[in-house]
Nucleic acid binder design. Structure first.
Lengths: 185, 185
DNA sequence: CTCAATTTGTGCAGTAACGCACAAATTACA
DNA sequence: TGTAATTTGTGCGTTACTGCACAAATTGAG
């Protein structure tokens, strides 16, 4: 049985919370590549042995954090169900803006491929509910091709925007991506 | 061998820190008498069994916190060694002012006698270094009597001031107690 | 004063975290 | 490229924390 937060041994909760919090702090201070398990251990005030009890390595820890962010984005999607693309996009872009120190240092490190992979998978899942190939402008087109095409486009726009230090205003990027998606999907 | 902070098992450090912090928070919210071990356990996020592993009961926990405050006051005394009574007093009174939520709720509860006892012992120890009965105005007087007399006076002034919600300005109380001590010691 | 609800205090078995040691791998610098 | 320093990854014995159960004590309301 998978423990819920309320049934999990509190020592496990505390250790994982400390490790994640420390990792996030460190990622806003230096590149993922330069963070050591020893750094995390010191900052979280838990033993190195304990970190290995919970995570295989720091890539696994990054995986888990990315998954948490993806889950947060999913929640935003649920609450944005009644909105059009631009409105829904703005919520996403604002989320990335709030968490930009995490994402920008991660994208400038060996963690970038992991994030891109997770994010692409997620974006495709979300778009799958928006794309209709049985009628309209996309009738007869491969749904799979459509999803990969626009999924990759979205991932690239988001990661480039973050990597370039949020150089475009959040509203502008959200609007333009919204226009492109409205036109095609 | 008494463990220092740096050699103590970190689980012990964490548990004790959490318990103390929770207790202090609770004491700024309600009377010591109404705080339960269950309250502390919930706020600190540690098991009740664990609290009993570290402290006999909540009176023992209060003892330890009072001792920590007394130790802080001792440090202030060391740094005030070159000052006269008024200047040194001001540091003490300001310390009580900073921590007044803790002291005032504690003094309005069953914890008051414990505090008075610890504080009187400490004040007497500090005054002992200031009183000379071999010459001057106190020649021939019992040192023990002098210490108890003025020790109790100081304790009463401090606790009444705290209990009355710091009704007199800190500077005024410190000055007047300083004058009285200068005159007699 | 009575009584239900709550809290206390503790024993105990199981789990998680700890610190240490050590060989292997990686990093950084000359 | 070589080498010292640092970090990694893991096994293991020990310690601390956990949650549960339960009898006893206390609290608060009627």
């Amino acid at each position: 049985m998978i423990p819920t937060m309320s049934s999990m041994d509190r020592r496990v909760q505390k250790s994982q919370e400390s490790i994640k919090k420390a990792f996030i702090e460190l990622m806003s201070e230096k590149s993922f590549d330069h963070i050591t398990i020893q750094d995390i251990s010191d900052r979280a005030n838990v033993g190195r042995r304990t970190i290995y009890d919970h995570y295989m390595d720091k890539f696994d820890l990054l995986d888990k954090l990315i998954d948490e962010h993806i889950n947060e984005l999913k929640k935003l999607c649920v609450s944005a169900a009644d909105m059009d693309f631009t409105e829904g996009n703005l919520m996403w872009f604002e989320y990335f803006e709030r968490n930009s120190s995490f994402f920008s240092t991660m994208l400038a490190s060996k963690g970038a491929p992991t994030f891109r992979s997770h994010f692409l998978k997620f974006v495709i899942e979300e778009l799958a509910g928006e794309v209709d190939v049985t009628e309209g402008k996309n009738q007869g087109l491969s749904k799979d091709i459509l999803l990969k095409f626009f999924g990759a486009a979205i991932v690239e726009i988001v990661t480039a925007w973050i990597t370039n230090g949020l150089s475009e205003p959040t509203q502008v990027v959200a609007e333009q991506v919204g226009i492109l998606l409205d036109r095609n999907l």
